[in-house]
Structures are given as C-alpha cells and as structure tokens.
Design a protein around this nucleic acid. Structure first.
Length: 602
RNA sequence: CGGGGCGUAGCUCAGCUUGGCUAGAGCGUUGCGUUCGGGACGCAGAGGUCGCAGGUUCAAAUCCUGUCGCCCCGACCA
C-alpha cells in the first residue's frame, strides 16, 4: 500500500478523553474513531489488526477440531426462556433488546449458549457424533453499566465464542484442556504474555472456569498468584490461608461493654484499647456487613423478592461479594437465583438489628433471613461483636458457642484474599498483579442442555443431556491489550503477527529524488512480490514527519532509503530496536527473512 | 444507578469569576514560495447556530432553569 493512498490521519496531541495507552494511541494513530459511548468505528488499520487476530484465533481453535459457524445476532426471547436465562439477563440488564414490527422481542447476542444448544439438539442425535465443538467470531452486545477505556469495555465488540458438546465429563475435560492449549498458543503467537487463572463463572454459570489474563497495570482484574505452586486466581475467586489472629486477654464469657459513638471497627478497637482491653486488635473483631439480596423471577417463583443477608468476616478483612453471592445462592437453592447484592440502607440496618449502623452482631436481636459467617471464625477464639444495641459491643464472643440456640448459620469462605496471605497449595505468601481478561473458558455441564432438553442417544439407547463447555476470546479486546503490552513514548510497537503492515519503506531524500525513489520502489515491489505486507511512504513530507508517523502507527520494520544510498546502503530500523545498514541489493531479501522469522509458529 | 468533572473550529485548549466591540490561540487543513534524516519556515485563506431549549437583560459563550451528551471513581464482563 502506498501511504499517499491510505488516508493516514494522525494526531499530534492526545485526545482529551483517552486515559490509557491503548485508547490514546489507537485514537492518535487513526485506528479508531469514536462513534458513541462504548462504540467505536475500526478504521482501515484497525480492520487489518482485528482481521489478523481473528485469523490466528480461528486457526488455533480449529486446530482442536472445532467447526466454525455463524450464528444470528438477533436471538428470540423464547429461546432464552427455555434456558431460564431471560429473566436473569433482564434483571441484570445485561442484554440489549429490540422489537420487530409485531412487537416480538429479540435479544442482541451477548453470548450464544441458547442458540448453539438449540442447534446441537437439532443436528447431534447420537453419542457417535460426540464430542463436537462449534465456534464463531461475531459481534456481541452488552448493555455495559459503564463503557470504559476505549476498546477495553464497550457495548459492541467482536468475540470468538466456542461451545463444546460431550457425552461424558472426561470428554469435556479433554476438550477443556485442548482449548486451554489453543488459547495459550494463540496468545503466544500474537506476542501477548497471557496466563490462565481460576475464575468465578458469573452469569454464564457452570462448574468451573478459568480466565486468560494479559498482564497490564491498567487491567481491571486483580490476580493473586504463587510462584512456587503455580496457583493463580482472580481475587474474586481466590482462596488462601489466613494467618490466625494473635492471642489476647479476653473475658472467658461474653461481656457487654458500652462503646459510645464508636461505630467503625477501628474506633471500637481504639476505645477498647483505652478501656481495659489493651491488646485487642481489629483481627479480634467480628465484622458484620448487611446486604439485601435480590432474587429474580424463576420457574418456581413468579415474583422476585428481597432476602436480607448478614455476612461476617474477621474485623481486619473485607467481604468478598462474589463469594458471598455464590454462597447465598447455594444456600437459597430453589428460592433463588440471586443476581445482585446491595448494602442495606441505614433504615434497613436499624430494622434488622434494632440499633444504629455499626453495632450489628450475630447474637440476639439480629433479624435477617440468612446469616453467613466466614469459616475461619469457627473456633477462632474470643471475638468482639456488635451487640445489636446502639453504642454497645460484646467482648469475648466465641463461635459457635455463643450463638443463639435458634440461630441458623451458614459457614462459608467469604474473605477477600490479598497479597501476603498463604497460597492454598504451598502456603507461601501470595503475590498480586493486575490483568486484562482476554479469554474465558467454562465447564457448563448440563446447565443449558438440561432445561432446553438438548439430548442425544447414548450407547445405552437412552436420552442424555449434552455435557457442555464454552470458551470465549474477546478479539477486539485482545488488540487493545496488545497495545497495552507493546508501546513506548513514540507510539505502538505491534508484534509482527498482528501489525496492520509488516514493513514500511521510507524514501527520505528530497521528494522526487531519483535515487531514493528508485531504491525505495524497488524494495517495495520486491517485498510485495514475496507476499510481505509492505507500505511505501510516497507522501510529499519531510523525513521527520514520516518517522514520527510510523513510530506512532507501530510498523515493526522500517527501511529508510536516504543518505546511505551514497554508499549503496539503506537503513533497517526495527520499531523500538537498533538500526543497521544493509546493502540496497540485499534489503528486500533480508526483510523477508526477518518478517518470516517473526511469524514462525513456535 | 450513586459520587466527581466536562461540553467553545477537525484536535488540544483560552475566554465565563465581574454580561458589552467583529469569539481567540496552537496544531491540523487549503493555495503559493523556500526547506528536505526525527512532527520546518514565510505569506495568503477556509473553518464556529459557543451541546440543545427556555428564561433574565438594552445586551448572554459568560447569569438562571431545564434537558441531552461525554469522561473519570464504584457494582457488570470478553
């Protein structure tokens, strides 16, 4: 491509509303045009990048034996009713919907489990056809609460989504493992440092899942990991060993203590330290967080309802709301599902505890539907709890000894694990880093096939629901993540495999100078003839302008035909690397070798 | 949805507090000339319903009310 024909428009200044590197650079270099909040137009350069990402992803997913298809974006409400997810997605308002002229409602594909399960049920009738995996790369829509960070979180994006169907858990495990290998290969080919972490399954559901993260400081997810055991998990899901609180001089039996005007844990401990309990710390307190869980209409229960929940963790720790939500759902079972939790308003706290906020405890006076206590607090020794009475706490509470006789308690893991806690496998301190979620794999089991009656005939001549897995890669997000990992002060540094063009040839003499023009044109034509994706910067611009532009755009290799021609040489300048002089006659051949080496599948 | 901020030229911004001439600058862009290895220079030009609607006023980018949109922090997710 000749630069004079490619409508290259670069900005000298950063767009005001771009915060992170990928957003800023992709806008500045002309890859993206913002069409609306969370909506982007992919310019000619971006289109090439996305196409390459999709090709590599498709190649690696296909390598597992998966079959590429294309599913409709408009999804009938009735199909989602069959799986029971319509109400859930409406309640969380994740799905955008449209109506046709007959007022029939359609969802705009946020994902495609229902559609593909319906398809599999129609075309897969026997265990002899299993396992089978279908995938597509298509536009997805999410009614994001807050689009953010350019391509990172948008309302409309391109996703590779794959769905596997199995006759057994063992078969699912094989494909799940093969997909993880495919992901790893795909990300490595695209020059991304990505790693798998244990994850919460969220609204997709199922029995297990891993996320693929690209390490980046601007990532929206926190990852805890252990170098020794290899353990890595999203903080939403991470478990760990929490060091026990040190012993302290606590009363043997619960003792009510007046704690006037000290509602927060820090204040309560400070007050007690000054009033007879000098060695009490926040780790000896019982933190109570009160929530309202909102259930959604389901097959067994037409109307949604509010369920009050009290969650207890150690005073120096935080409640993990994802763990709590999962725990509430396990406990409520058929009364669920619960899709969201919100903290109680002050008046609700007063109704639930009979006290001002800040004095809630597990003892008498707490009136909530569900009480969940972090399992580490069982037999944890003496604790300081709210007394459910304004300005009073109870010191020396022991669990479960001092719980009211009629109190039903769920013991579960509710604590947010943090760096420094012990690895659940090795016990070594966990470290933390941030990541961008670029892929996710789920073991779905029969979550969709059972309610949708998607069944096959087994070897036993009986009908069985498919055992399923599903797998997603955010193709457009991958491109943004690549920029996050590969940029510098001058612009983007694309990995060769996903760069919009591989080489740019820059004539750097006076415009129209015969020697530079001839040399550049010759190299350019030789590269094209060998299938290299080459650019020729034939614009009437000064060399400095050209250099700045190609650094910003991020072309991996620049060949400059300029003053070196006097001695028969051109300059090779890898983006971000050292320049070297190369004889004109060898330039094309050496560039071809460089590009092919960088693209070689490892 | 709660909290914070912003809407003035294609981009980045000034002007608004304290209303008043024809609404400005830099970059970009068009024409001509000079220049040509890291975002050159001179001259000439184009480009604006100051987000939108209403109000106050002799007079509104500026003050008031409403409204729409965008960005950032939290809950959602590839």
């Amino acid at each position: 491509m000749r630069a004079s024909l490619m409508n290259l428009v670069t900005l000298r200044e950063d767009p005001a509303d771009a915060e992170i590197a990928s957003h800023r650079l992709l806008l500045r270099a002309g890859y993206l045009h913002k069409s609306g909040s969370g909506l982007y137009l992919y310019g000619p350069l971006m289109h090439r990048v996305i196409t390459k990402v999709q090709a590599i992803v498709a190649e690696e997913i296909s390598r597992t034996g998966a079959l590429q298809i294309t599913m409709p974006i408009l999804q009938e409400q009735a199909l989602w009713e069959k799986s029971g997810r319509w109400a859930a997605y409406q309640a969380t308002r994740t799905m955008l919907t449209v109506k046709d002229r007959n007022d029939q409602v359609f969802g705009l594909a946020p994902t495609a489990e229902e559609v593909v399960t319906d398809y599999a049920a129609a075309v897969v009738k026997s265990y002899r056809q299993l396992p089978v995996t279908f995938f597509q790369q298509h536009t997805k829509f999410r009614d994001e609460i807050r689009p953010r960070f350019g391509l990172m979180r948008v309302k409309e994006f391109i996703m590779m989504d794959a769905y596997s169907f199995h006759a057994s858990d063992e078969s699912l495990a094989e494909t799940y493992a093969a997909m993880r290998v495919a992901y790893t290969r795909a990300f490595r080919r695209m020059g991304l440092e990505a790693f798998a972490v244990e994850a919460d399954a969220g609204a997709i559901g199922g029995t297990g899942s891993h996320e693929f993260m690209v390490a980046a400081d601007v990532g929206e997810d926190a990852i805890l990991f252990c170098a020794e055991s290899g353990y890595a998990a999203n903080v939403e899901r991470a478990t760990g060993r929490i060091a026990a609180a040190p012993g302290w001089n606590a009363p043997a039996a619960p003792q009510v203590v007046a704690t006037p005007n000290v509602g927060t844990i820090a204040d309560v401990i400070g007050f007690l330290n000054r009033n007879g309990f000098a060695d009490a710390t926040a780790a000896h307190a019982l933190k109570c967080v009160l929530f309202v869980a909102k259930t959604v209409p389901s097959a067994t229960k037409q109307a949604g309802a509010d369920v009050s929940v009290a969650a207890f963790v150690r005073g120096d720790r935080e409640v993990n709301e994802v763990k709590l939500l999962n725990s509430v759902n396990r406990h409520l079972g058929a009364q669920g599902p619960v899709l969201s939790l919100r903290p109680m308003h002050p008046e609700e706290v007063r109704a639930a505890t009979g006290a001002e906020p800040g004095f809630a405890g597990p003892g008498d006076g707490l009136k909530v539907a569900v009480v969940i206590i972090d399992q580490t607090l069982k037999d944890a020794g003496a604790l300081i709890a709210g007394a459910n009475r304004t300005d009073h706490h109870v010191v020396g509470v022991q669990l479960p000894r001092d719980l009211p006789a009629d109190r039903t308690v769920v013991w579960d893991d509710l604590t947010t694990i943090r760096a420094g806690d012990g690895c659940p496998l090795s016990g070594q301190p966990l470290a933390e880093r941030r990541g961008i979620e670029v892929g996710h794999v789920f073991k779905l089991g029969t979550k969709y096939s059972a309610p949708m009656h998607a069944e096959f005939t087994g070897q036993d001549s009986k009908l069985h629901p498919f055992i399923m897995g599903c797998y997603g890669i955010g193709s457009s997000r991958v491109a943004a993540a690549a920029v996050e990992q590969h940029n510098d002060a001058d612009g983007i540094r694309w990995p060769m495999a996903i760069a919009p063009y591989q080489v740019v040839v820059v004539p750097a003499g006076k415009p129209g100078d015969a020697a530079t023009t001839t040399a550049a044109e010759g190299i350019y034509q030789a590269l094209l003839a060998s299938g290299i994706e080459a650019l020729l910067d034939d614009r009437d611009a000064k060399p400095g302008v050209k250099f700045k532009d190609w650094d910003l755009v991020g072309i991996p290799l620049r060949i400059v035909c300029g003053r070196g021609l006097a001695t028969g040489e051109v300059e090779f300048k890898p983006r971000g690397g050292e320049s070297a002089n190369v004889p004109v006659g060898e330039a094309a051949a050496r560039a071809i070798v460089l590009v092919r080496a960088a693209l070689a599948v490892v």
